[in-house]
Amino acid sequence: MVCLPMANPYLVVEHLTKVYERGQVLALRDLSFTVDKGEFLVVIGLSGSGKSTLLRCINRLIEPTKGKIWLDGGEVTRLSQARMRRVRRKIGMIFQQFNLVDRSTAIANVLTGRLGYLPGWRALLGWFPEEDREKALASLERVGLRDKAYVRVDQLSGGQRQRVGIARALMQEPELLLADEPVSALDPATSHSIMQYLEQMNKEDGVTVIASLHFLSLARRYGTRIIALKDGQLVFDGSPQAIDNVKFKEIYGEDAEEVEVR
């Protein structure tokens, strides 16, 4: 049962289960799926359907209760904390609430993306190598925020802050990017700009992206594949075109109407 498929997919999730609150709440129920290298996988589902928990189980910000996850042929669910940190360096993550340190400047936030590569004592002294600083400026340049490098991030707009978050992820030179509802706190126009940065990372740098999204229109536009969660269970796994009205009602409930984000 636990043999790797022939094609060696990049990420394998098997029987993943997460139970909260002393066994009372089931966040994820027996999820199994695979992701190939270079895919742009979109996870959809209602709030509370387990999207965030799933993404956090992959880099083990949350410990799964049961089940296994392989990344690039290695089983991440078996790694010690120290080895897990080395794996996390290659997994970028961006968040719905951006999760930046508000009191710090944009470049200080971006530099933290290098912490996994820095010896502990240098990290504590804040002694980043010169090439990291140059790289940080280049990352900010890439997301169009070079001129905001020395501005405190609480002075920036929502879209700008999420771009700082992307620049921080870029610093990790990630192979995998986890995006937890990256545009839910943003307006539609800004949403597209953020999604285009993710698309660019996916297409040009070959980063595998797993993003959870609220809007099906965004999922259809950017995803190469969609999986849908409902009450922690996998209810859909297929191409964006395969979600028709019937499937939509199944995922979001009978009362749901599809809303477009243009």
Binding site: N59, L61, R85, R86, V87, R88, R89, K90, I91, G92, M93, F95, Q97, F98, N99, L100, V101, T112, G113, R114, L115, G116, Y117, L118, G120, A123, L124, G126, G165, R168, Q172, L178
Partner: peptide, 19 residues
Amino acid sequence: GPIEAITATGAGRLSVLRY
């Protein structure tokens, strides 16, 4: 939030405290 984000970059516990 920042604790989560910095942990996700692969930083150690002391770095999380510091940053």
